[in-house]
Write a protein that binds this DNA or RNA. Structure first.
Lengths: 340, 340
DNA sequence: GCCCAAATCCAAAGCGCTTTGGATTTCACC
DNA sequence: GGTGAAATCCAAAGCGCTTTGGATTTGGGC
């Protein structure tokens, strides 16, 4: 007999009904331990596992989580932070048998992408990446009745929603204060794109610290841009050429900080001496900034951990049918390095 | 009447059979243009699209491509190169209505992950990432009869398979020769992990050029490691401390090159003057190395483009039922920068 | 008006699983 | 040995779609 390839054949082969085999495999109590063993062995021997397409249709659950990653219209960039975030989330999904569906979607296609995903019901829930201020996706998803968790938050949004975020305002406040306490009076923040919620919060924390210490508006600068290495480089170059160059720079990511360092050393200055740099550190695996005395002083928060927590929150809200929304706020850790 | 949510309700609502509505939506010729319009309008109005779970079961095609990304056992890293690769592939999938299933799998779970994926048939094909020398996944996938394309190649493997690779041997040969022609006689290659196929080929190209120019074995060094920024930094530090420090360094990626540069400038040396650096450049969106005179001299090959080509090859081999295997070899482009 | 092919539509089977509702067997207990 | 509950198993319906095979309608040519 050819190796049984589906439930029908397998159960015929075993002299059992499909019901019994299905129940045996899915751990139902209505089947004796003896036959369960027999079923398991046969399944293993013939390398059988239930067709996921059929299983999903029968159960009505697609057992997959969608990650809809927005693509910047112009530059088609995928933030490398994303790789580490996914890696955290993926581990959690695997535990519960969920698949991870990745979809890169251009800004102007977002609404249709989410709506289609909901009406075709090929995901049980989604993760919202890179929320903007007043992000319309949240309202949309609530109205679509599709469970979701936002990685970050969106100020201005009235509705309740699940989110996992790092306390950007607070950590950038603390970081700025740290620099001020070191004696710096000319500061610059090299920030992300201004419509991003996290960038807004960082900028708010930055300015709150400046206000608290009475630093005037013409003694600091804030730049905005996609957080690439060249962006860090070019912004710093411009800052250094200004009439009142900053003595301390806050970088919105380690990658940006790499560009900042390049500009500083290219200008013949010494990092941590002529000019201080403090960065936000997502603890990216390809840019570890650790050791006894790390290169950069940072405020660190593992984005991989955020990924794991996001996945966890999403799965539990799906499986417990929670209507109650939850927010998880992570606190970044201050790490003294050589750059301040 | 409540908004129709499935085929049955929609066709009842329209006074048509499910067959006709299904055919109208799927563009079959057996339905008049008039009713097709009527169906389309209703579908749009009620925001109906066929349930993907049911569609997939009925058609027997899961309309998804799996990307199985190996995770380094120890460090749990996800290469940021991956983000750009995916972004290229994703665009191609979207064109043909395929979903992208992302699965991070630890080395020791690879066999079971692939086997399970095949027996549950929840993907129509897979992309193999980061092939090693003599990679066992190729044989496995061939025996599982699951269409696949390898991003890279695997020397030592006898069987035929689809692949998309950049000509690493040739470009590292050329790069090395370029450095030798500039007068360098002490060279170092900061390479990837030694069991990786691409690393082996790069090392081969490097050594072929050295041999061709009669450079002795003690006049060059090759290091191996996970291609992170700190790896580039530490390797370079060690090289600089040696008795015969290299005058030129070949870096296996732009990210490594960032670490190399850090070590060089930290040592008080000037990049491109005291020491030359030439890197492989995947054209990562967050590390663009362009402009009039790019920072680094590089051999460049867009990994995003490789992603697109990989996806294209995979889809066409799935849809045309090709048994004929195909290899696509990309040539890297030499770009003169400031670092040599 | 008639005929036949083309155009248009439909009823029902089937994809491979889960699950309902019920039938049959086992077994401890009196 | 008889009884009833627990244990064990099964037939059949159903998930929402596609697709086969056939029925019905339309329309051009004589």
């Amino acid at each position: 007999m050819a190796s049984p390839t589906n439930l029908k054949q397998l159960s015929a082969h075993l002299g059992l009904s499909q019901t019994t085999v299905s129940r045996a495999l899915n751990g139902f109590p209505e089947v004796s331990e003896k036959t369960r063993q027999r079923v398991f062995e046969a399944a293993k021997h013939y390398n059988y596992s239930p067709d996921s397409k059929a299983k999903r249709l029968a159960t009505g659950r697609s057992m997959t989580i969608g990650h809809l990653v927005p693509i910047s219209n112009e530059h088609e960039m995928v933030n490398p932070v994303f790789a580490d975030f996914i890696s955290g989330a993926s581990a959690r999904y695997a535990e519960s048998g969920y698949d991870l569906l990745l979809s890169l979607v251009a800004d102007h296609e977002e609404i249709s992408a989410y709506t289609r995903m909901a009406s075709r019901s090929n995901v049980d829930g989604v993760v919202v990446h890179a929320p903007k201020i007043n992000d319309h996706r949240i309202k949309l998803l609530n109205s679509l009745d599709l469970p979701f968790v936002v990685h970050g938050r969106s100020s201005g949004v009235k509705e309740d929603y699940n989110w996992v975020d790092v306390n950007n305002e607070r950590s950038f406040f603390a970081a700025t204060e740290h620099l001020i306490n070191l004696g710096h009076r000319q500061l610059a923040l090299i920030n992300g794109l201004p419509d991003m919620d996290f960038a807004m919060r960082r900028s708010a924390g930055f300015q709150r610290a400046l206000n608290a210490h009475g630093i005037a508006a013409n003694d600091f600068t804030i730049t905005s841009g996609e957080m690439t290495e060249p962006y860090g480089y070019e912004s710093t170059q411009l800052l250094l050429q200004s009439d009142t160059p900053p003595t301390a720079i806050l970088a919105s990511s380690i990658i940006v900080a790499n560009g900042v360092r390049r500009a500083i050393t290219n200008a013949g200055l010494t990092l941590g001496q002529d000019i201080s740099v403090l960065a936000h550190d997502d603890d990216l695996s390809y840019f570890r900034n650790d050791g006894d005395t790390p290169e950069f002083t940072v405020i660190r928060s593992s984005v991989r951990e955020a990924g794991r927590l996001t996945a966890d929150l999403l799965l539990s809200s799906i499986e417990n049918q929670n209507t109650e929304k939850k927010g998880i706020l992570l606190e970044a850790e201050f790490v003294q390095g050589n750059s301040t």
